[in-house]
Design a protein around this nucleic acid. Sequence first.
DNA 1: CAGGTTATGGCAATCGCTTGCCATAACCTT
DNA 2: AAGGTTATGGCAAGCGATTGCCATAACCTG
Lengths: 337, 337
Amino acid sequence: MAQRITLADLAEKTGLNISTVSRALTRPGRVSAETRRLVEKVAADLGYMGNIAARNLSRGTTETIMVLAPNFTGQAISPVFTEVLLGVCDEAESLGLSVMIHSHTGQPIPTADVMRFLHNHTVDGILLIATEKWDRAVAGHKDGPAPPVISVMHDLTSEGLSSVVAQEEEGFVAVVDHLAGLGHRSFAYIAGLPGVYHEVRRYAAVRDRLTALGLQDGLVPIEGGPFDLASGFAAAGRFLALDQRPTAAICCCDALAIGFMQGVRQAGLSVPDDVAVAGYDGLDYTAFITPALTTAVQPSAEIGRAGVRMLDDFLKGRITAPRLVSLAPRLAVRESA
Amino acid sequence: MAQRITLADLAEKTGLNISTVSRALTRPGRVSAETRRLVEKVAADLGYMGNIAARNLSRGTTETIMVLAPNFTGQAISPVFTEVLLGVCDEAESLGLSVMIHSHTGQPIPTADVMRFLHNHTVDGILLIATEKWDRAVAGHKDGPAPPVISVMHDLTSEGLSSVVAQEEEGFVAVVDHLAGLGHRSFAYIAGLPGVYHEVRRYAAVRDRLTALGLQDGLVPIEGGPFDLASGFAAAGRFLALDQRPTAAICCCDALAIGFMQGVRQAGLSVPDDVAVAGYDGLDYTAFITPALTTAVQPSAEIGRAGVRMLDDFLKGRITAPRLVSLAPRLAVRESA
DNA sequence: CAGGTTATGGCAATCGCTTGCCATAACCTT
DNA sequence: AAGGTTATGGCAAGCGATTGCCATAACCTG
């Protein structure tokens, strides 16, 4: 793929100077309409395509953003992440940004990596899908201006990073309220990975809401696992072994819920009659299984879009102070509860 | 994010020439061990990070590949694609390549786009996940050397593109054989999007195998749709309206199968007793729904990995002629059939 | 019509790294 | 010890586009 046509070629062909050609192509108002038309015609004729690397070097910019995702390689991907990515790509495209994707291995966040990508001009900004805390100290940027990094799905404003998140708490409040409204008084909580951001917040939301309703004594936390189907299935075993089984199960995420339902039904229990089940995320699949899962549907793609918009605002200097955007989930009441 | 340290800084600090510093960092054998150590130490001290854009311009290379995916924005993503992407990222990382992702809007493949990315040095090579035919003519490269583009999931060797695919036909042969072995003699085929590569091949595989078994008269094609859950659900309605319902349903993909199962079960039919259902793809979810879906599990992530390896081989000049790699799916017999 | 704007195009430095080619020094051979 | 290698580092020319600054020409204004 040898680079064929350069600005120099166009310059020679048009008899103009390289700089004029460059301006004709990138600064519409800077040259006369006539000149611009000429250059454009010749460029089209010759099939000029420009050299991005040269532009990047010269401008010190790449028009590229990176999404740094957790565990993206080496294990299953959460469909939620995929949806976020879809939103990201969508919005990036309409803003004229390219998107690179890279994975980080989880906690602790490889701040050094982040900084490297930024510093060596690989990308202009980063959309961080963190699993754990962003260790600002590692960056050695404690005093400098905030780096162009937006946290997605995690509220890291306390660390100085703009963030766009879902109102998970509200989602779980809605779930709890719905279940309580159905008359349930005992609740299993099928946990995600212990200690992890989402798990911690979701459990807290459930517990607090139950407490507010005076039902905290009915809460039975059950070990789950890494937000996947198999962990939910395994959790069902623990649930079944309980002396007094709660009548409802609130799962930390949809994958756990689906696995859990599969587990209890295999043991002969009926959902929702023997145990009502609710999840969180709103994966497509939840609507097409039997019984269809009641779940809080999170606007994942929109989160991705908002993240990109925010990063773009940041890069263009339209905002400077860390900001928080949080999007509300919507409860989808279906058969399982 | 101002670029701070450059090779010039290191050169000054070490008293060496820029070129020597550059070599110390990138051509281990080219300088004395002592010099290298010195440079490395100073580089570490100063936190040198290099400027990728400059390197790219100078080397005429980007060490970046692009995955060009269909419909990635604007509509639901197939989990299969996600899995492929996972494999791609995984392998790319271990080969030291970055990956950009970009979407194309389907047929016809935007060959011009492809060429632009290649020509303007945005990326070194492309992993094309095509939906339709690759229009070689558009590229205007009919005579030139093959561009560094690998087709993934579609055999485009006939167009001169190396490809890595799944042996879909074998997968469907296995499905048909399994169903026939169970005693089924009438088969509904729930179709994907009409005319689309996968749909065409899969249907042909089913029909041919049934013919080979002398069971072709039992085949009833049923309109499905764009490889998603809702289409499968809708197809169930058509299936139910049939005068004589086949006893087995072969679905073009898992999403269709899941939607289909949901549809027929909602109508009171039992799977597999009233109708056996089988899919293709091997999505995680198929094992955790009731009834668990019998399906041909395609090694999607491995396809992604193999694609990247092949592209890398191509870029490094280890292969030049178009090649075809095809990976076998594995039949997972579960409850639905 | 003189003095002052404004529009347009050219010059050349610059972005930071890479690499072919050359010079030097050190080390062999016979 | 003379001629020949080999290892190491420096020089400088790129890679291709961008952009601040300047020169010129065209156009105003009173």
